[in-house]
Design a protein around this nucleic acid. Structure first.
Ligand SMILES: [Zn+2]
Ligand SMILES: [Zn+2]
Lengths: 644, 644
DNA sequence: TAATGGGTGCACT
DNA sequence: AAGTGCACCCATT
C-alpha cells in the first residue's frame, strides 16, 4: 500500500568487525560507524514518509549504530567467516545477551528464556521512523519462522509479538458443561522465594506488603505466546534499541510465505526497491518450497570438522528439561549414542537447552552450505503455554507432581508424567553415527507452498486456514479453557504437554524438549541433505532414501550478482526478483542440487502410534495434512528430475 | 478534532406520533416519514465527510426512519406528554423490546437482561456514515450514565460497549501468592436444560454433540461489562438498526462530564453547531453539578398522582433479587413501609427488577420537574460481573450455595449469603411516608464536577484517575483474580457481592438489588428534593436536613427560549451554551431553586460500619473521596445561599 | 448473499 | 510485558 521513497536496505547478513569474543564489556563501547555495515544508515536521505516520525528525531544525520551493550555473548565472525567460534553464544551476562542481528538464530537458540534473559540486538540502524522498525525486524525474523506483529507502539516504543495463528473453523463442542475455569501462574521469579507458590502463603508481612509484579492476563485466550521484541527509543542516545524479551514460544515456528503479512512485507520490499532483500526472500521461499535448508537457521560448526558432518535432525533437550512422555514414537534412525553422550555434550554449556545435532556435509568458508533436513512426522516443540490464560510471560512455573494428570476421555488428553531432568526422546533411537561434534541448530515448521495454481486445492492450504489453532493451542485445549472443571483444572498448566503429546504422533523424527522453549523444526516429510561427504544414513523401516539425480539444473536468471553483503553465502547466485513460485529460476550456483538428496519418510505411524493417535483424536493434525502437500511437491520434483 | 460540515441535530426528546400502545405488530409497520421528527434526517444534505461511508449507501435521500419492529412495548407519548401510560414499558415480546430512543431510560430499567432480551431502538436516523452513529448514541446514553466506546466496527456493523473505567494507578500487592484462578460461566440459557451446569454432565450424546454456544473469555480482565449496543446496517432495507444487546452492567452507571470522551463529544456538538444538544448537555452538566435531578432518568408516573410524590432515593429489588448482605448500613430515613408493600408493588410488573420509589413534588405536565436526590454513601448496584474473566454476556448463572463465601481476611471480602428472593436492603429503614404509587427510576453515580480551578486539587479527581477500578472491579477483586487459590476461587463468581459489600458502607442511602442489573444511582452525599408538597423526611441519627433558603435566584441567561422539542420540559428555560461550570448562569425558571432543599448527609459511618470498613479496607473507596468534593460543592452552595 | 458473531493488529491514551 | 478504542478481517449460517 504505502510506497515510501525510502529504501531501507537492511542487510542483516552483514559482517560486523566490532565483535568481541567472550569478553564482557561493562563500559559502553562505541564502535566507529564506519565499521558498521548497516545499510539502513547508508540509505538515502530519509524523507520521513510516515506520519509517526519520531518527534525527537530532528536530525537526519547518517549516524551509525553503536555497540553499546555489555557484550557477554558474542559470535565472532569475520567478513567472510560467520563460523561461530567455540560456545561463546551460550555465555550470557546477567543483563542478557547481545547479538548481532545476523546471528539472531544463534541467540534465539541459546538463550531460551526460562530465566527471562534479554537478547539485545546490536547494531541496530538509526531508525528515523518507527515504521521502519517492523520491516527491519521482519527481515530478521521471517527467516527464523517468526511472523511479527505490533502489539503496542507509541513514539518511543514498539512492542512486537508473534502473529496470532489463524483460528480453527469449526469450534468443537465443549466437553464439559461446567464452566469452572482456573488459571495457574507463577510469579516471584524475580525474587528468590522458593516456597510453594500454590499455598496461600500468608506470611507475617500481611497483605499488600510485598512488592511483587502483578500478574496479567493475556489479552487473548488464543495468542498466548510470550515471545516479545521491544524497540525503545532512547532520548538520551537518540537511537532505537531492540531487545528480545521472552525468547520462547507457545507454538511451533514456521515460515509461511503465503501469509498476507508476508506478502505485504514483500510488497514493501519491492516498493522500496530493496532488490537484495527481495532476492534473499525469493531464495528463502524457494528453499522452503523445495525443502532446502534455510540459511538463517544454520549454525556453523566450531569444531573445525564440519566437513564430516552430514546432516542434522535431532535436537536434544538438556537435563533441565521438565518433560517426558510415556509414548515412544521415535523414528530417528540407528540410535548409536546413548544418553551419556548427550550428557557430556550438555556439560559444555550450562545454559543450553537444546542441542541440534546436525551433520554438515562440507566445510565451506561460510555457512550457506550447511545441510538441512525436512522431516516427516516431526516432533513438535514442547509448547510454552505459560499459564494458558494468564501471564504468558511468566517463565518460572512450578509443576506440581500431584497435578500430573490430564483428561483421558474425549478431550484428547493423555495422562502424562512430569519428570525433571528427563529427556523427552528415546535416546536409544537417535542416530549419532556421524557425531563427533556438536552444534546448535533449530528446526522450523515450513508451511508448504505450491504453485499458485495448486495452492487453492492443496490440502495444506486448508489446514492453514481451517484447523490450525491459535499459537499452539489446540481446539481441545481451548475447550479445556472453557470447560475445565475445578478438579480437572488442576492440570491446566500441563496443557503444553497435551500439545506435545498429540504432535508427537505425527512428528517422530525429531523431538524438541526444553523448558517450553521450542526450537524451530521442519514439518516437511522429506529429508534433504547434501550428500557431499555425507555418509548415508541407514534407513530404518520407515525411512526411504531418494537420491536426487543431477538433472536439476535451474536456469540462471538475468539478474547480475552484485556481490552484496546481503548474501549470507557469497557463493550463492542471485535469484531473480520476481514472485515466481517456480523453482526453475533458481540459480544452480545457489543450491547445487546435485549435492542434495531427498530422504522421504513414510507418513505411516507405527502401530502403537496409531492406537495413541486414535485415542487422542489427532487425525486432523495440520502436520499430517502438510505431508500431503509435501508429497505433491515431491512428486513435482520427481517429475522434474525423473529419478530412476 | 474532526469538523464535519454535517450537523446531526439529533433530538432524542422528540415525540413520535407513531406509537402503538401495547399492540404487538407482527407485520412491518412503515410509518410515513413525516411523522418522524428525527432531526437527523432533516439535516443538511450529507456531504459524507468521513472515510467510512457505507459503500452500499448510494443515495443521499432524506428518507426517514421507520418503525419496523414488532412493537411489544411502547411508551405512548404525545408531543407534549411524555408520561408513560400504564406499565406498558415492561411488556416485552419474545424477540425483545422496541423503544423510542427518547424513552431509552424506561426500556433500560424495565428490560433488565437476565434473559438476554433485546431492546430495539426505533426510530433510528438514516445514518449515511457509520461515524454518525456514535454521536447519536452518545446523546442518548450519556444522560443514562453510560459512556459508550466502539468495541468493533466495520462497514455494516458497529458494536458499542461501556467505556472501560480508569484503572488504578498503584497496583496493590497480591494477597495470595498462588495464581489459581477460576471462571464460572453458565451457558445453555437458550435451552431449557436445568441441570446443574457445574457437573461434568457427560450425557448420552457424548462429546461434541449438542449445539451450544461457545463460552467466550473477555478480551480484558478489567472491562467485563456485558452491556452492548449493536448497530447493524441492513443491506436489504438500506438502513441502520440499533439494538441494546445486554442490558446490564458490571459497574455503577455514572455520568462524568470531565471525561475526555465526553469533552470530545461536546466539542463535536459545538463543531456541528448542534446548539440544542449543547444546551441540553450544558443543562445536564449543571444539574449534575448542583445535584439536580437528571431528566433523562426521570420516569413519569402513571398514577395521576405525581404531584404528591416528593422525591425518590430508594430502589427496591424485587423478589428475584439474588443478593443479600449481612451488614446493615441503611441510612434511609424513617422506614415505614415493610416488605409486604414492596412485594405488592412488585406484583404489578413481573418483569421488573428494580423499583425506584421517588417522591414527585409537583405534577407538571411533563417530567422535567421530577425531583431527584443526590445521595451520600449511596449503596452501589449489585454489579453484574458475570463470570469475572469469562463470558461477560452470560446472564444465566447459577450460584451454588456451597460457594457462598468470600475471603474475609485482608482481601476486603466478607462472607455473604446468597438467597434468592431476598431483598438487599433493610426495609425497616426505608421511608415510604409519601408512597402511594410506584414508578420506575434509576439512580446514577455522578462524578462530582468542580470548577476547573479546583479540579486538579480535588480529591475526587485523584480518585477518578488513581484508585478507580475497571468497570466495577475493585483492586481487591483484581487481586483476587490474580491470586485466588483453588479453594478461594470457588467464590470467584461472587465478586459482585464484594463490590456491593464494600460500597454499602459508603452509599447507605439507596440500595439497588437485582439480578446483577444495577440501576443508576447517585453518589452525591446531598439529597436535593423539591419541597413543594414534600413531607420532610424524618432524619435518622445520621441524616441532617438542610433547608435551602430562597436566596438562590440564578440569573436568567440571555439565551432565548426556543421552544425546541429538544427540551424534555418545555417549562425549562435554556441554559447558555458556554462551558461555564458556574451554576450562576442557571435559569430560575429551569431549576426553581426555592423549591429545592438540600439534605446533607454526614459522611461519617456508623460505628458498626466503621468496623466493617476497617475490616474491608475500603478507606480508599473512590466514593468516599467523592464526598469530599461534594462537600466542597455543598460549601460553595452554602456560601451562596447563606442558610441559617 | 445477507446477517451475524468474533479475533486481532496496533496506535492512542 | 501498559490497557483499550477501534477497524480490518474472518467465520458461520
Ligand atoms: Zn511465538
Ligand atoms: Zn456497563
Amino acid at each position: 500500500m504505502v510506497t515510501p521513497p525510502f529504501v531501507p536496505n537492511i542487510d542483516w547478513n552483514n559482517q560486523y568487525d566490532n565483535i568481541i569474543d567472550n569478553k564482557p564489556i561493562d563500559t559502553m563501547t562505541h564502535i566507529p560507524s564506519q565499521l558498521s555495515k548497516d545499510s539502513y544508515s547508508h540509505s538515502h536521505p530519509y524523507p520521513q514518509p510516515h506520519t509517526h516520525s519520531h518527534p525527537y528525531d530532528t536530525s537526519h544525520s547518517h549516524s551509525h549504530a553503536f555497540l553499546e551493550y555489555n557484550y557477554n555473548v558474542l559470535t565472532p565472525t569475520g567478513n567472510d567467516n560467520i563460523m561461530v567460534q567455540g560456545h561463546a553464544v551460550s555465555i550470557e551476562g546477567t543483563l542478557g545477551t547481545v547479538t548481532n542481528p545476523e546471528n539472531i538464530h544463534l541467540a534465539l537458540l541459546n538463550n531460551k528464556n526460562e530465566d527471562n534473559k534479554l537478547i539485545h540486538l546490536d547494531p541496530v540502524p538509526n531508525f528515523l521512523d518507527k515504521a521502519d522498525i517492523k520491516p527491519w525486524l521482519q527481515k530478521i525474523f521471517y527467516p527464523q519462522g517468526i511472523e511479527l506483529v505490533i502489539e503496542r507502539s507509541d513514539n518511543t516504543k514498539v512492542v512486537f509479538k508473534c502473529k496470532a495463528s489463524k483460528r480453527g473453523k469449526n469450534a468443537k463442542e465443549p466437553m464439559f458443561s461446567n464452566d469452572h475455569h482456573e488459571k495457574l501462574s507463577k510469579h516471584d521469579h524475580n525474587n528468590s522465594n522458593t516456597s510453594e507458590d500454590d499455598s496461600p502463603q500468608e506470611d507475617s508481612t500481611g497483605q499488600k506488603k510485598e512488592k511483587k509484579k502483578k500478574k496479567k492476563r493475556s489479552v487473548s485466550r488464543f495468542n498466548v505466546c510470550p515471545f516479545r521484541i521491544r524497540a525503545t527509543y532512547s532520548l538520551k542516545r537518540k537511537k532505537w534499541g531492540i531487545v528480545v524479551l521472552n525468547n520462547s514460544h507457545s507454538h511451533d515456528l514456521e515460515f509461511n510465505p503465503n501469509s498476507e503479512e508476508y506478502k505485504k512485507f514483500k510488497d514493501k520490499l519491492k516498493s522500496d526497491n530493496d532488490v537484495e532483500a527481495i532476492k534473499k526472500f525469493d531464495e528463502l521461499e524457494y528453499r522452503i518450497r523445495v525443502h532446502l535448508p534455510i540459511q538463517n537457521t544454520m549454525i556453523p560448526c566450531d569444531c573445525g570438522m564440519t566437513s564430516e558432518i552430514q546432516s542434522f535432525n535431532i535436537v536434544l533437550p538438556n537435563t533441565s528439561s521438565s518433560t517426558t512422555t510415556t509414548t515412544k514414537n521415535n523414528l530417528i534412525h540407528k540410535p548409536q549414542l546413548k544418553k551419556k553422550i548427550t550428557d557430556s555434550l550438555l556439560q559444555q554449556t550450562a545454559k543450553k537447552k537444546f542441542i541440534a545435532v546436525h551433520y554438515n556435509n562440507e566445510n565451506k568458508s561460510n555457512s550457506n552450505s550447511n545441510s538441512n533436513i525436512k522431516q516427516e512426522n516431526q516432533l513438535p516443540t514442547v509448547s510454552n503455554i505459560p499459564d494458558f490464560i494468564d501471564d504468558p510471560f511468566d517463565q518460572a512455573k512450578n509443576y506440581d507432581s500431584t497435578d500430573n494428570f490430564l483428561y483421558t476421555n474425549n478431550s484428547s488428553l493423555l495422562p502424562m508424567t512430569l519428570t525433571e531432568s528427563e529427556d523427552i526422546m528415546d535416546l536409544n533411537e537417535i542416530d549419532f553415527t556421524n557425531i563427533f561434534t556438536k552444534s546448535f541448530n533449530g528446526n522450523m515448521n515450513i508451511q508448504s507452498t505450491t504453485t499458485p495454481t495448486t495452492i487453492e486445492n492443496d490440502t495444506s492450504h486448508g489446514i492453514a486456514s481451517n484447523e490450525t489453532n491459535h499459537n499452539g493451542l489446540t481446539r481441545t485445549e481451548l475447550d479445556l479453557i472453557d470447560n475445565l472443571t475445578p478438579v480437572s483444572s488442576l492440570s491446566m498448566f500441563h496443557n503444553d504437554y497435551i500439545n506435545h503429546t498429540e504432535s508427537i504422533l505425527n512428528e517422530p523424527q525429531s523431538r524438541l524438549g526444553s523448558n517450553h522453549t521450542p526450537a524451530m523444526n521442519y514439518s516437511s516429510p522429506h529429508h534433504i541433505a547434501r550428500n557431499v561427504g555425507m555418509q548415508p544414513i541407514n534407513g530404518s523401516n520407515d525411512s526411504q532414501m531418494q537420491h536426487l539425480p543431477n538433472i536439476l539444473q535451474p536456469n540462471h536468471t538475468g539478474i547480475p550478482h552484485k556481490g552484496s553483503p546481503l548474501y549470507l553465502n557469497k557463493e550463492l547466485d542471485i535469484l531473480h526478483t520476481t514472485n515466481s513460485p517456480s523453482p526453475s529460476v533458481m540459480s544452480r550456483d545457489v543450491f547445487d542440487m546435485e549435492n542434495y538428496q531427498i530422504k522421504n519418510e513414510p507418513p505411516e505411524h507405527l502401530p502403537s502410534d496409531i492406537n495413541i493417535q486414535a485415542h487422542l483424536n489427532v487425525s486432523d493434525d495440520p502436520l499430517v495434512k502438510i505431508h500431503e502437500s509435501d508429497d505433491q511437491i515431491n512428486n513435482w520434483l520427481s517429475s522434474l528430475y525423473q529419478p530412476h
